[in-house]
Structures are given as C-alpha cells and as structure tokens.
Design a protein around this nucleic acid. Structure first.
Lengths: 137, 137, 137, 137
DNA sequence: GTGGTCTAGACCACG
DNA sequence: GTGGTCTAGACCACA
C-alpha cells in the first residue's frame, strides 16, 4: 500500500493521511476486516510523528471507516458508514464542486463525465497510477 | 443575496463565506461584472470581523472568481477560472467524495444521480430553498 | 452462564469480563461459595488470553467479590464487599451518571425510574434477555 | 469554578477533567452558552499540559456537551445530548452500579435513596462541598 | 489571544 | 508489540 503525503500542502498531515486511507479503502487495497499498519509503523514509514498518525486513525474511527479491535489492532470496518446517512454532507461538498465546475464553463454533461471518471478510477485502481487522461472533454 | 455562516462549523468563517459567494456566483445571483458588497458592509451584515471578509475576497481574487476594480471595488470576474484549469484539483476533491460514496455503498449510478442533482440545484437556485428530495435513491 | 465480551469496545477486555462476572453474581447465576470456571477454561471459551482472565479474577479478588480457595480454586465470596463500604466510590459514579441524566433533561423522577428498572433487571435476570422497554418515559 | 484532578488516580487526566466539567455543567456552574476557560488558561491553572485539556474539550464536544464557537471559543452547548438518546449507555452503567449495590446488600429502596441523593446533590450544588451525610441509610 | 497542528520522546495499560 | 496517555514546547490559522 502506497501512501504519499505532502509536507508542503496546507492540508494538515493527519487529514491528508485520512484521505489517502479512505481512498485506499475505496480502492479495495484495504479490505473490510483487514488490519491497518500500526500507528508506529506507519509513522516511521511516512516520517511523521506517531500522534499525527493516531489522530488520523481516531478520525477514521469516529467516522466509522475503521474500528480498533482489542486483539488485532486497527482494522477496516465491515459496517462502513452508509452513503445515505452522509448524504447531506456529501451533497454540500458536491454542490460546491459543481458550482466551481459550472462557473468554469463545464456543462452538466461534462461535469457528470468527470464524476463518472472519478468514480471509476477510484473503485478500479488496484495499484498503478496513471493511464487515464483526465479532462479530455 | 442570502449568505449564511455557521459560527460552530469546523470550516473557517472566511472559507464559509468564500464558498457561499462561489455558490452565489454559480447560481447567477451575482453576475459577471456585478459589484460585491463592500467589505465593511458585508462584515456588518454578517456580524463578523472585516478582516475575515477581506480574507474571503482576497481568496476569491487569487482564485480568479473576482477582480478588484479601482473605481467600483470588488466585482465578479468576466473571465472566470476555466474548469479545465482547475481540473486537477476538482478531480482530487471529486475522487475523495466518490470514494466515500463508494464505501458507503452507493453505486456509480446512484452517485451520478446525486452529482446531477447537485449540479442542477446549483445553477437553478435563484432564491428559494427546498423542493428536491435528496437521497431518494 | 453466558458471558459476552466485545472486542471493539473501548473498555478493556479484563474489565468487561470483571463486569460481566459481577452482573452474574448479582443475578444469582453465581451463588456464594460457587466455583468459577478455571482461568484456562474461561479463556478458551471466550477466545481470549489466559492472562486476561487471570487479571479479571485478580481484580475481583482484590475487590472482595471472590476468594481463592486452595482446594477449589476461585469461588464467589460469602462475605461480599459491603455496599456501605463502597459507598463513596458508588456515589461518585452515580453522581456522574445523574449529572449526565440531568443535563440530558431527565427529571429526578425519570432518573429514579431508570435506576429502579436497572436494579430490578439485575436481580431478576436469571437468563433471558429482553422484555422491558427502557426509556419509555 | 473549582476543578480538582488527582494525579495519582488511575483515571486518565483528560477523563477526570471531562467528568468534572460534566458535573459543573449539571450543577449549573456552567450555564448553556457560557464560555469555558481557554485551553491554555485551564491547563496553566491545573498544572497540566494544554493538549490534555484540549483532549477533554474535544471529548466533550464529540459528546455534545460543548461546542466551539469560532468567535467566542468553547462554550456550553444549548442543545445538550438527550438523556433519552444516551439511555442505553446510561442503563448499562447504572446496571453495573446496581449490581454492586445489590451484592453489597443494599435493597432496592436503599439503592434508590442513594440515587435520589446523588441526583439532588448534583443539581443543587452551587458551590460549597459537604453537608450531606452519604450512606446514612 | 483563541484553538488547531505537529514534534520528539516518554511511560503505561493491554493482550 | 499494540494503542493510549502525557509532557514541553513550537508554529500556525483564525478572528
């Protein structure tokens, strides 16, 4: 599992890490029930502080993406947060992106193509990067 | 123009304001060339610090949504940032949302329905809220 | 005797086990003088480490709920810790729960109903779960 | 507002602090909408690390007892977590206490007296400690 | 001045 | 070896 974080980004490290892990779960690189790397292990691998990684794990736990099993450590939840439940939040975020796309001149059709492409690229990315040519509208 | 900010949100006020303004522009409530309220006026109306509003305006300017006209103050840009240009950022954000939707059990079809709904609700929201029943998959 | 532990709880396993055993004693499922299962047996049955069970037994012994009999192993104490003695601790714990109930809008009457219900459900639970409808205030 | 923490206790500092604050809210020493001391201020006053205090605040926030207002800092929530909602958890905790009381020889009547006393002492403690003689059954 | 983030290192509880 | 707790001190974002 390859995780990249950008020390220069204005997005907090723990959030970057959280996002990367969400992507990994969605991509099937981390299957339900599968164990995540230990806090220390991942911290060492990424060169960040253990507490930063722990904060990411805590956030993922609070959001229902992972659970901490007392015997096995942190594992991917088998009962992920329902998309229906998060719908309101999802909609607000999507609305903002749609607005920016609309201002940028993207028609609804183009925007939906982009959305479809993103959905596909997420759920079907086993490992390798690249391949698709985004924004080839 | 109705702008709502939530003092208890985890999103910074200046970002909330920036987002609301982007939505207003996309909705056509603020047309290209149209003048935004003055910093002080908006600050007073919203009950926030003028520096906060200023920061939002600066961000919008840096992102190309508005321009500063010597005579008229801050006006909506007539040459908005191209959706193509922002594509990379847009894609990353969309990917994360798509991932969460996927984990939440939403199929691509359901996700796209949600996206379409958001796009429509943005560009066709002149004023009134409500009407649609989101997440009625 | 049915003991359930939750590997995903934030309560340590040994404490969960201790609590379950206390409940079993209160319910009369384990009578004074009666022998508890051996550490290894219970560990095997629950699928936890023997040291974890041992820790629970040690805790129960330290708290006076059980005693170690040279011949028979661990047995339920015939001289249980007096409610009077534990009163201070009991009160502190109750106070915290009462506080949360009060903040949550429960009147004293409702809170006492809940307490009564809990007391009854404990001492009268021979085996089967369910039946009562809690919080039907 | 007087807050005492015990460095020798096996209860984590952040939890002790959280509990003390819950008691203070229930006692009306902290009214809805009222501002809590700043993280640094309280940390300095208690002689603990700021992150420890912050952890308490975050926990209280996650549990709905307080909210962080972007203009005013951390304030007591005006929409506290419903006692009904937390009922299941409350019941489990109460059941364990009831069990210990039962084992200790307290009758239901005595237990309820204790509960009533705790409820009263919480909601009616303006400042001074002492006065009641607990366990005077 | 507020809370939020991050670090480096330590100790402990748990299993 | 795991996650959880705590510290002392630093820097930044926010208002």
């Amino acid at each position: 599992m390859l995780i990249r974080i950008d020390l220069q980004s204005d997005v907090p490290l723990y959030l970057q890490l959280r996002n990367e892990l969400v992507l990994a779960i969605a991509a099937g690189q981390l299957l339900p029930g599968q164990k995540l790397p230990s806090v220390r292990q991942l911290a060492g691998q990424l060169g960040v502080n253990a507490m930063t990684v722990q904060k990411s794990y805590n956030l993922l736990k609070a959001q229902g993406f992972v659970v901490t099993d007392r015997k096995r450590g942190t594992v991917v939840s088998s009962t992920p947060p329902s998309g229906q439940a998060c719908c309101a939040q999802l909609q607000d975020d999507l609305a903002l992106l749609a607005a920016q796309a609309g201002i940028g001149g993207l028609s609804q059709r183009e925007f939906l193509q982009l959305c479809a492409q993103c959905y596909r690229s997420i759920t079907q990315k086993p490992a390798g990067e690249g391949g698709d040519t985004p924004c080839s509208s």
